[in-house]
Each structure stands twice: as structure tokens, then as C-alpha cells.
Design a protein around this nucleic acid. Structure first.
Length: 182
DNA sequence: TACTGGATTCACT
DNA sequence: GTGAATCCAGTAA
């Protein structure tokens, strides 16, 4: 599989979020196809709205993993975007590819549809924690080209929590895919 | 130093 | 559909 170059992530979060669909995320022999993403930019519902020590990794950086801990038990995996601005893409769901048996053990389930179908779930299955925060794409976690997703196959929806956007679509997933989060 | 709530998930009802 | 689990970043004092 061909690796994705860092420049891929220099573009706007909305573009990157859409184009990441169908790519593969791989870490320690476990991998999955990205089937759902969410774009984050400078809006009030986003960590990117206010620069803090935690979120400043998103400022003027791209192609880096922004990983944070939430609700006391889960991690969320983002990749920073927007070369000269602030932005990131949250990886929301993957379709399992490699390392399925070990991911089942980590997730304590045998249901393949429940392995990676959520931001917290996929971090648990891939064993991704905050220790990987601020690492570059391809340093430890790899991202590969895998298959092309046509525009007509992509469903767009609003992100939860966005107030001011009436006409912007922020969340992207592959239509009719059984592995997207509910 | 103390308080609040979250880019979630799961077990219940 | 509702609530619990559970830590830590952010904020205010």
C-alpha cells in the first residue's frame, strides 16, 4: 500500500475529512479502513476555537496526531490539518482490516461491527493512547491509500454542537457502510 | 486549590 | 431514552 504524504494534510479540514474516507490507518499490526470522519475548524464547538496548551498542537501544524482523553475513559484520534491555520479531522469509525482477533480481545467483544465503530472504540481496539499525541503521521501510526471513494458514495451531515452553521457539512461517512458509528 | 463538564460508550429501562 | 462511569483540561479564585 502506498503511504500518504504529509502534504495531504496541509489542506482544509473539510477537504481532508472527505478525502480520508477509504484510506487505511495502521498501528502495531492492527488496521482499518476509514469510513467516517469529522472536520474541526475554528468554531465555538471545537477545541480549535481557543488556543490552549492542549489544542495549540493544531495551530500551524499539519499531519500530526492530536489525541486527547475524554470522559475519563476514552481517547479520540485526530489528525491536524490546515497548513497556515488551525484545524483537525477526527477519525470516527474504521472498517476492520488486519489484527481482528487482537482487536476483539482489547474490545472484549466478538462482534466485528462493534470493534471500531466509534472514536473511543477504535482507539481502544488499536491501543492508541495519549502517549502518541503530537507524533507525526507515519512516525508510529501509518496512513495509506487504499481505495477510491466516489463523491456520490459520500454522505455528509452536520456535526453535533455546531450552532451557527446552516449550510456547512462537517461529518462525512461512506454511504451504506455497516461499520459507521450509530 | 476547587469546580465543571466533555469531539463517548455501555448497561439499563 | 436515560444515566453512570471516570479523568483531566480549562477556568476562576
Amino acid at each position: 500500500m502506498k503511504k500518504i504524504q504529509k502534504a495531504f494534510f496541509s489542506r482544509d479540514a473539510l477537504v481532508v475529512a472527505k478525502e480520508l474516507l477509504g484510506k487505511v490507518i495502521s498501528y502495531n499490526n492492527c488496521s482499518g479502513i476509514i469510513v467516517e470522519t469529522e472536520a474541526y475548524k475554528k468554531d465555538p464547538a471545537s477545541h480549535a476555537f481557543k488556543i490552549t496548551p492542549r489544542s495549540e498542537i493544531m495551530l500551524n501544524s499539519y499531519g500530526k496526531f492530536y489525541i486527547y482523553f475524554i470522559y475519563g475513559m476514552y481517547h479520540c484520534l485526530n489528525i491536524t490539518t490546515n497548513k497556515n491555520d488551525i484545524g483537525a479531522v477526527l477519525i470516527r469509525s474504521l472498517q476492520p482490516l488486519d489484527g481482528i482477533s487482537i482487536m476483539k480481545k482489547r474490545r472484549k467483544t466478538s462482534d466485528i461491527h462493534n470493534l471500531l465503530s466509534g472514536p473511543g472504540k477504535l482507539c481502544q481496539a488499536l491501543n492508541i493512547t495519549k502517549s502518541l499525541n503530537n507524533t507525526n503521521v507515519d512516525d508510529k501510526i501509518k496512513v495509506y491509500y487504499y481505495k477510491n471513494i466516489k463523491n456520490s458514495e459520500i454522505e455528509k451531515t452536520k456535526r453535533i454542537g455546531i450552532k451557527e452553521s446552516k449550510d456547512l457539512d462537517w461529518r462525512f461517512y461512506i454511504k451504506n457502510n455497516k461499520f459507521v458509528s450509530k
